[in-house]
Amino acid sequence: MNLKQLAKSRGGRIAMVAIPVGIASAVVMGGVAQGAVPVSFSISGTSFTMGGTELNGSQFSQYGGVAKLQSGKEEPVAIANIGSATITDLCQSVVQNTPLGKVGLVITAGDAGTPVKASNLQIGMTDLKGDATFSNIRIGADASTVITGAKGSAGDFAQDSQGILLKNFSQVAYSTTASTLQLTNMHLKVVTDGSGCPAN
């Protein structure tokens, strides 16, 4: 799907107040060669989870939108943007039903003293838990005036802040894009017991 259309979609909007955001890892991220977001790709409709002990980011915004899946189904999401971020103890997982049972893919990174680094993130998420601190936050801003490069539609509810700090967070999302993603000490493994990342 076209995330620019997602970000500007007016159908099925949701007003989510003070919802911060995590990020997902490279397996589900669309790399953007020129650093421009949003980008176009098809969303499968399979959600993924990720979490970490800390996300420290700058230039944050969030507004409601709709994610269009490849099947044509629409899902309400919170669209969140972060200009740059570091993540400590990142874990991301996706589990699907297969003829062999529940098979999962788990990725960990940033757990050996050097955090994951990312820039120009955009996430379509449905759930987030954790401890959040915002710097210079504006709640109730017009989505077309947020401080990030990616913006919503005029008249839509939004929030933005100069900084965001998440601790012990976990999230569920349908899509993430990023300009760059540096995964230090990355470990990818396939699991056949249906397990994923531990809950924070």
Rank of each mutant, 00 (worst) to 15 (best):
V94F: 05
E75G: 04
T46Y: 07
Q159P: 03
G57H: 04
M125Y: 00
E74P: 08
G130F: 09
V103K: 10
T184W: 08
L165W: 07
D111I: 01
A15G: 10
A132W: 11
L90Y: 01
G101A: 07
G194C: 13
A36S: 11
T49L: 06
P38R: 06
I164R: 01
V94N: 06
G130Q: 10
S25T: 12
N97A: 10
V28F: 06
S40G: 06
A112Y: 04
I139N: 03
K129C: 08
N200R: 05
Q171R: 06
I19H: 14
D111K: 07
F48C: 08
S170M: 15
S93E: 11
Y174Q: 10
V32E: 14
L90Q: 00
G113Q: 05
K68G: 08
S144D: 09
Q122C: 14
S153A: 15
D89I: 01
A24L: 13
Y174P: 10
G163T: 12
T86W: 01
V39L: 02
K129Y: 04
N56G: 06
S84G: 12
M16I: 03
P99Y: 05
A112P: 07
K8M: 08
R138P: 04
T88L: 05
A178P: 08
T180I: 09
V94D: 06
F134V: 05
L6C: 06
L69W: 02
A26G: 01
L6A: 14
S144W: 09
A178M: 04
V146N: 00
V172C: 12
K167A: 08
V77P: 05
A109N: 10
L105S: 00
Y174G: 04
I79F: 08
S42L: 01
A158T: 02
A178F: 02
C91E: 13
K189W: 05
G65R: 03
I43G: 00
Q5M: 12
I82E: 03
S161P: 05
T86I: 04
K129D: 13
A26R: 11
P198R: 10
G130C: 13
N81S: 10
G65L: 00
G101F: 12
I139C: 09
S195N: 11
S144E: 02
G35Q: 09
P115Y: 00
D160C: 14
A80G: 15
L90D: 04
G155E: 03
Q171L: 13
G64C: 11
D142R: 03
I43N: 00
V39E: 07
A67P: 10
G101E: 13
S40D: 13
G83C: 03
V190P: 05
L90S: 12
D89Q: 11
C91G: 15
A18Y: 06
I87Q: 07
V28Y: 04
A18E: 14
A143S: 09
N56V: 13
Q122A: 03
P20F: 03
V146W: 04
L121Y: 01
L6Y: 00
S25P: 11
G104P: 10
F134R: 01
L181N: 13
T114Q: 08
T108Y: 07
S84N: 11
L121T: 09
K151I: 11
T114Y: 01
T98S: 15
A24N: 09
G155H: 03
D193N: 15
S71R: 05
L121H: 07
Q162T: 14
T114R: 14
K8P: 05
S58I: 09
L105W: 11
G45P: 00
A109V: 02
Q70M: 10
G30C: 01
